[in-house]
């Protein structure tokens, strides 16, 4: 069987202690929450940390807080618990749907919100055993210097976390702590387009919570994951939309996100031009096409990027329609 490389497991019981341990061990240490992403990657020898700092014994990370005008979701909350949370299902349906679409039931029970937010990017050439990657000649993201997808010097491994698109359209904020203290970062600034490491977390920093403002009255949002199988898989494409109509039926807010393309989950730009109009078929079509323009799938996940690209407007349209029909 595939075995884990050796490491020391440290189990701090407070955030301070965890930060201290991460600082102390520096580049030798990695944090581990649910482990459903990190441990397979370690069995593949993609990471060989000398120290793992476990975050599961830190109660502060486990809270789901209703702050009145916003939700504060602890990074250590299991995905399934959030997906099944009645308040979240009602208030942030696209997020609840997305978290309910992660992997299989076990992964959702073990995996955490913070873990999913920080999920390592994925690629056909990367998420494989050491022996396989050796036969490949390795790749840019790990142990090699060639990108087998794009051929360039930039890693295009795909953001494959189901949580990112809904968090983008809900304009959530990431609460981070680290050696330099606490800071916040909007999710839309949390990722950058580098497949080798696509988050803006600094060394020794941890995601503590996500803060999601409760959408204004009348906001509707929806999520769709294009997948090969009914469970235990990663997305071929992830999409979320959020919109709001005023009392006359005019579109007053709109956002859409598409992910599982390259390293950065893509918050679609230029949608403001559609505001102020009453949505009809033509408008829905136009929005969907706009989303398609910025979405260029690659061969990092599946061998038919053309089909995946064509699916963007199809599902964006359906999501918009779901929101308008709601």
């Amino acid at each position: 069987m595939l075995r884990l490389p050796a490491f020391d497991l440290l189990e701090p019981t407070s955030l301070e202690e965890a930060l201290h341990l991460l600082a102390e061990h520096g580049g030798d240490a990695m944090p581990i929450a649910g482990g459903t992403d990190l441990l397979p990657n370690m069995k593949h020898e993609l990471f060989t940390p000398k120290v793992l700092v476990s975050l599961t014994s830190i109660p502060a990370l486990r809270a789901i807080e209703d702050l009145g005008d916003a939700w504060r979701l602890g990074a250590g909350c299991p995905l399934g618990e959030l997906a099944n949370h009645p308040g979240l299902q009602q208030s942030l349906p696209a997020l609840a749907e997305a978290l309910g679409a992660v992997g299989g039931p076990h992964h959702r029970r073990m995996g955490t919100l913070g873990g999913n937010l920080c999920l390592d990017t994925r690629c056909l050439y990367y998420n494989q055993t050491f022996q396989w990657r050796e036969a490949l000649g390795f790749c840019l993201k790990k142990d090699g210097d060639v990108c087998h997808v794009a051929g360039g010097r930039k890693c295009v491994a795909a953001a494959s976390n189901d949580s990112a698109p809904p968090l983008l359209v809900y304009d959530a904020t990431v609460e981070i702590v680290g050696p330099g203290g606490a800071r916040t970062l909007p999710v839309r600034e949390f990722y950058h387009p580098d497949g080798i490491s696509n988050t803006r977390l600094e060394d020794g920093e941890l995601v503590v919570a996500l803060r999601v403002a409760k959408p204004s009255q009348g906001t509707r949002a929806a999520f769709h994951k294009l997948r090969r199988s009914g469970a235990i898989d990663f997305p071929l494409l992830n999409m979320a939309v959020s919109l709001r109509l005023d009392e006359r039926g005019t579109l007053v807010a709109l956002s859409a996100a598409v992910s599982a393309l390259a390293a950065r989950p893509n918050l679609v730009k230029g949608l403001d031009r559609f505001l102020g109009q009453v949505p009809d078929e033509a408008l829905v079509e136009a929005i969907a096409n706009r989303c398609r323009r910025g979405s260029v799938p690659l061969t990092n996940l599946a061998t038919d990027p053309e089909w995946r690209r064509a699916m963007v407007p199809v599902f964006i349209k359906r999501l918009l329609q779901r929101c308008l029909d709601a």
């Binding site: 482990g35 459903t36 441990l39 599961t56 992997g103 299989g104 076990h106 029970r109 073990m110 235990i232």
Partner: peptide, 30 residues
């Protein structure tokens, strides 16, 4: 049982505090 090495098959499912988890992705010490 051990079927896939890394959380793709569920053959290693055990109940931890009543909930099914993947024993192959669960560190014993935790």
């Amino acid at each position: 049982k051990q079927g896939c090495d890394k959380g793709d098959c569920g053959a290693c499912t055990v109940l931890v505090d009543g909930e099914p988890v993947l024993a192959c992705l669960s560190l014993a010490k935790r």
